[in-house]
Every structure is written in structure tokens, then in C-alpha cells.
Amino acid sequence: MTVSLDDVQRAAERIAGRVRRTPVIQVAPELTFKLELLQHTGSFKPRGAFNRLLGAKERGELTAQGIVAASGGNHGLAAAYAARELGVPARIFVPVTTPAAKLGKLRTLDATIVQAGNEYAEAYQAALAARDETDALLVHAYDQPEIVAGQGTVGLELLEQAGTFDTVLVAVGGGGLIAGIATAIGDNAQVVSVEPALAPTLHHALETGAPTDAAVSGVAADSLGARRIGELAFAAAQRYGVRSVLVDDPAIVAARTELWRDHHLAAEHGGATAYAALLSGAYRPAAGERVVVVVCGANTDPSTLI
């Protein structure tokens, strides 16, 4: 499986009018934020979900059986939202550790919610079983070509919105977002993966030479807690020379606090992880380097921001 720039461009055409063209803001002379936390359902995920469902609909694969998806929360919200917009049922499998803020939002989207296991990998196995029983469409959280191509539309927007830039910092869980962005802009700018030190799936794969299981935990595990990096993300990281850095939990918490205090952006921990690389020094830009940070998720309890 591979994803091409043409695939990303076709995804942009397919999902036009279904997703928001999220804004960019310049917060310093050489620093820009891409505000994907303002996307429908509070993260970038509807881009891939709509591309997957609409592509399946074009091929006659989206039936009255609807969809199944496994998620730490954000992908489930996006898949349920896309399914509701297209008039098909959705069963969303989430770990029992999914934050209440995400569960509450899921319940507003007419989806059937099934809690299974303590982490994403266990919820995914339950979703696969449901797919096999019902022939519903499986909407993977990150490792399907249409999902990756949809997420890559973030990169296409950046090329149009952000002017000239040198580097994009992207938080990584399963890797759908970074795979798509690298495919869209990897020939034009450096792409840097930022992962929690307690969930180093891509970092571990790049060190060992192949996707393998890594232990995952920490404050951002609900959104960046995939145990193994996707094959598509690993291939894109190798093809485009993605650099990988790790940040610890205190750095993620501090970045989330600063996003709220200084920029009035209510990010979840996973959404603040890319910014943590700058604040902590895990990534140090060269003099004059123009950096874009993708702030990718907002599904958090706002009472914890103060």
C-alpha cells in the first residue's frame, strides 16, 4: 500500500464542503500554528473519515450495515460524524480508559458506543470482530490509504496558507496525520514527528527498522496511544526522511498550559504534543528557520485548563 500526492489531491476534491479549511495564525516571526483543533469534532480526523466513507460510497461499499471503527476517541468522533452526515449507522469501539469528555461527545453523534479493553489495540480487535460479523465498513484510525490521503489535505492547505516555511512539527500516534502531511509537503519542507516518550511508536520503528509493538502510556495516550505505527506512516517516514523527537509528559502538560494561557487555544494533551517539542528544546530550530506547528486536537475537559 502506498499513498501518492495525487491521492491527497483527489481527497481534497472529494471532501470539499464536508470539512473546514482551518486557519493558520502567525504567533512569532518564524512560528505559525495550523489550527486543526478547530476542525469538525475537534480534531483533524474528519478529513480521513469523510474520504474513506465517500470513496466507499462511490464504489458501492457503504451499505445499510454502516461502519465500525476503533478509536481512543478522536477518530471515533470523526467516523461517527461522517456516518451521521451520510445517513448510515456507526458502531464505535473505544477503550474503557477513554476520557469522559470524548465519550460525552460521541453520545451526541447517534453512534453505538462499545467500550472494549484498556487501550486502542484491544478496541481495534473488537471492531474487527464486529466487522466480520456484520460486513460493515471498517474505518481504520490511521492505516488505510483513504484515511492517510484525507489527513494529507492538512498539508495541501498549509502550502496555500502559510507562505514559505521550512519545517512542520506533527504529533504522532498511529501516524495517519504525519503520513498524509509528509506525502503532501515532504518534497517542499522538513517534517518532524513528535511523540510522547511514553508512546514512542514511530521513534521505535525507525530505530529498529520496522513497525513493532511499543508500550504506550502517559497523559496523551488517549489520542496518541497506538501500540504500533502504521505501515503507511512508516513507509512515508522513510521515504521523506522524517525526523523523530520525543517529549516527556511534563513538557506536554506545559505546552498545553501555554497554548491556553498565551494563545487561548483549548488543546488536549495530544494536540499540544507537537508544540511541546519547541518549548522543551526537543526540537531546536536553526537561526531563521520557519516552523509550523500543527495543533491537532481540542477534545479535553476545559475545567482542567486553568
Score class of each variant (00 low, 15 high):
155 G>K: 10
248 D>H: 04
136 A>T: 03
251 A>R: 05
138 L>F: 10
157 E>S: 10
191 V>K: 13
263 H>R: 11
209 G>Y: 03
219 V>E: 10
264 H>V: 08
249 D>E: 11
204 H>R: 15
192 V>N: 11
194 V>M: 01
202 L>E: 02
214 A>S: 11
142 Y>C: 03
248 D>A: 07
147 I>C: 15
256 R>I: 01
218 G>S: 14
173 G>D: 01
160 E>T: 07
241 G>L: 01
159 L>F: 10
230 G>P: 03
175 G>C: 11
218 G>H: 09
206 L>I: 11
253 V>G: 05
197 A>P: 09
144 Q>C: 06
226 A>I: 05
195 E>S: 04
222 D>M: 07
250 P>I: 08
259 L>C: 06
155 G>E: 09
249 D>Y: 04
210 A>L: 11
223 S>G: 15
151 Q>P: 10
220 A>Y: 00
215 A>D: 15
166 D>W: 08
183 T>R: 00
198 L>F: 14
208 T>F: 13
255 A>L: 05
233 A>K: 02
238 Q>Y: 00
263 H>V: 14
226 A>P: 03
241 G>R: 00
257 T>H: 14
137 L>K: 03
251 A>I: 07
189 A>W: 05
182 A>Q: 06
244 S>M: 01
173 G>R: 03
147 I>M: 12
215 A>K: 13
224 L>M: 01
219 V>M: 10
154 V>N: 15
138 L>M: 14
179 A>E: 06
154 V>P: 14
170 V>T: 01
243 R>F: 09
176 G>A: 12
169 L>K: 09
147 I>G: 07
221 A>M: 07
208 T>M: 14
242 V>F: 08
161 Q>Y: 15
136 A>R: 02
155 G>Q: 11
249 D>M: 07
177 L>Y: 06
246 L>K: 12
155 G>P: 13
254 A>H: 09
193 S>G: 11
139 V>S: 05
212 T>E: 12
226 A>S: 12
231 E>D: 15
237 A>W: 00
179 A>I: 04
193 S>Q: 10
164 T>R: 07
203 H>I: 04
243 R>P: 10
206 L>D: 04
164 T>M: 13
249 D>G: 05
231 E>P: 04
257 T>Q: 14
147 I>E: 14
156 L>I: 08
178 I>S: 06
172 V>Q: 05
260 W>L: 15
251 A>T: 13
221 A>K: 12
256 R>K: 03
183 T>L: 04
229 I>F: 00
139 V>H: 06
232 L>R: 02
266 A>M: 07
241 G>S: 01
217 S>H: 01
212 T>K: 14
176 G>W: 01
219 V>Q: 08
188 N>T: 15
174 G>F: 00
206 L>N: 10
194 V>N: 02
139 V>F: 04
263 H>L: 09
176 G>C: 04
200 P>D: 09
264 H>D: 11
191 V>C: 09
147 I>N: 12
141 A>F: 05
244 S>K: 01
144 Q>N: 07
